[in-house]
Design a protein around this nucleic acid. Structure first.
Lengths: 352, 352
DNA sequence: TTGTAGGCGTTATCAG
DNA sequence: CTGATAACGCCTACAA
């Protein structure tokens, strides 16, 4: 249709490239690159011109091309067993917001809870050249990650300071850790339950392979002992509502029941409460007191109004992002650590 | 430390590249590439050898390099206002699983609900060269997406067949649609409520700018009319528990109340129920009947046990993935459409 | 401050 | 079936 038919014009509109912008601005390709890099030196008016033309053409630097040479993909991988578990989705939400603010995008990977990290998933992930990896799935050791994930730097969330990390001795891999000190919050929970007369406690666990669960159980038992309370019953769980419900029914139908239940997570506590109220005809908190862990949004809903140990999500995400950025700035820095506190949020499931 | 000090050896172990594998296998770089592409022709034993050596070296093709030439990033962008909203997180979970199975990774982007799509976010996203984009945020028109997102193909979820799409007339952009037929499910809901004696209805909306909400309200009113029922009261909402709770309190404290409430989503219905039961001293379903929309996992929890209109998540995700794959196979195919049905799940919040 | 040359890791193309 | 060569879009290094 144009006066001088041109093969290029026949093609459908391709994405504008740096060359296109350069040609229109009468500068070199490199100048365009510099215009988009704040640190590069470039005469202000030239930069402004380039940016203006780029905007008109809808040009954006291609991350793939950039990643090839800078070795920074600006991609952060997040490994989760269940995006739809409330706690995880709330964490992913906050994390994505924070990372986006720093120019990183969140890449989601799912792994099954019930088995150890799939090797195929790892090699698959490696292909994307992630800058960092946050493994919420606790069935994967940081060594495995370090070993199989190129330049990505894993961050490991652990729940005690004495290094209960599943890494082989003699490992040379450096990994950063976010330590969650759960003892404070759990102690407050036990104290409150004890004060309201609980004598027989049960601990409803999460997935047994989960480090968070293992450490939570250990801390709970330890605190029970410190307070001169008898060893708690331990109920099998997997962080789900359904299992929590079933385990609670078992506890009261087969056994003699208890008067205080501490659940490894909030969703489990919901299952406990519903089993007590709707299947066993018991009152919460009058007959049985219940405490959860996480303080997800749903715990504030009036039907549950759950007393629970809170991990501050904003703090947690900020700490994670700090770790990521510091590690990216200096890949050879020694292992870094951030510590997080927990505290009890008192609502209506412990009382008289 | 080695006998012949070598500069390369001094560096810390870099990721293995195709050349490394090629050298060790005694083949060309291209052969390595072919070994990882099932369709390429390569003698079986040669492929096996290459794959074996690649595994030993921990080599995986680099997606960035590959994307540069194939123009396929294997990245699918998902735009959401709230990852932590249960419905969205459940959808993202299912979608990630499905996409992962097809070799695509899910890239998460957050946009604020309360304002139209940020242009900065769009250019930011473009840089990642997404293969496809699913906009759950309904405040962004497909035209905007098509215009500013290079080769990515947006998929649009709409809620009526008569094209209530916010695209400018004269637009030439092709976009695929997933149509959710909500009338069937809503009609079943109204029929049930009516059968149990509801006379005065209220509709609790979601975010007013949300297409899902607009169409849900329209369908609800339309069905009310068809059944000879009076126009429903419309309550302001934004899909959140808190707002639903407050709106319900208003409704009964300022006005005369109603005996049937239809909420634009399940979480809103939870807020309604809790307001009725815990703040207003009313019984559900005896005094007021409540129906939700979505059928999230929490709706089955005994404290709510919500009667709700279900969109089958598995169906929905399968349809989305079908659209993505078909469009990727033939970028110039005419616009495609998938349709989804809804149906009522009867639980305990409508009855006598 | 600016431009030129080279290469990041991969696949498409073409020749054998 | 296989290999050499030339891109893909970008940035770093160097030279002017």
């Amino acid at each position: 249709m144009s006066e001088h038919p041109n093969i290029q014009e026949a093609k459908r509109p391709e994405r504008a490239t740096a060359d296109t912008v350069a040609k229109l601005a009468g500068v070199s390709r490199v100048a365009v690159s510099r215009a988009f890099n704040p640190h590069a030196s470039l005469k202000k008016e030239k930069r402004d011109l380039i940016l203006k033309i780029a905007k008109e053409l809808g040009y954006t630097p291609d991350m793939a091309g950039r990643a090839l040479v800078t070795r920074r993909s600006h991609l952060v991988g997040v490994i989760v067993p269940d995006v739809c578990s409330p706690w995880e989705s709330q964490e992913i939400d906050a994390l994505t917001t924070a990372l986006q603010g720093e120019g990183f995008a969140t890449l989601l990977f799912k792994t099954r809870t019930d088995q150890s990290m799939d090797e195929r998933l790892l090699t698959y992930m490696k292909g994307f050249n992630l800058d960092s990896i946050i493994a919420f799935a606790e069935n994967v050791s940081p060594d495995t990650l370090t070993h199989s994930l190129g330049r990505a730097v894993p961050i490991y969330v652990s729940y005690s300071e004495d290094g209960s990390l599943p890494n082989q001795p003699g490992s040379t891999s450096v990994f950063d850790r976010l330590i969650v000190d759960q003892k404070t919050g759990i102690d407050q929970a036990v104290a409150l339950m004890q004060a309201y007369g609980c004598r027989n406690f049960a601990y409803l666990g999460g997935t047994t392979t989960s480090l968070a669960n293992t450490e939570r159980e250990r801390a709970f038992k330890c605190i029970m002992k410190e307070r001169g309370l008898p060893d708690p019953l331990v109920l099998q769980g997997d962080y789900t509502y359904e299992t929590a419900l079933a385990s609670t029914l078992d506890l009261f139908k087969v056994g003699e029941g208890v008067d205080g239940i501490f659940s490894a997570n909030d969703v489990g506590a919901f299952g406990v409460i519903d089993a007590l109220r709707f299947q066993l005809g018991l009152r919460v908190p009058e007959d049985v007191k219940v405490v959860g862990f996480d303080d997800i949004a749903q715990s504030g809903w009036l039907s549950y109004n759950l007393t629970t140990v809170k991990i501050d999500l904003e703090d947690r995400v900020r700490a994670l992002v700090r770790l990521i950025l510091r590690r990216l700035k200096d890949p050879n820095a020694p292992a870094m650590t951030e510590t997080l506190q927990t505290r009890l949020i008192v609502r209506g499931t412990v009382g008289s």
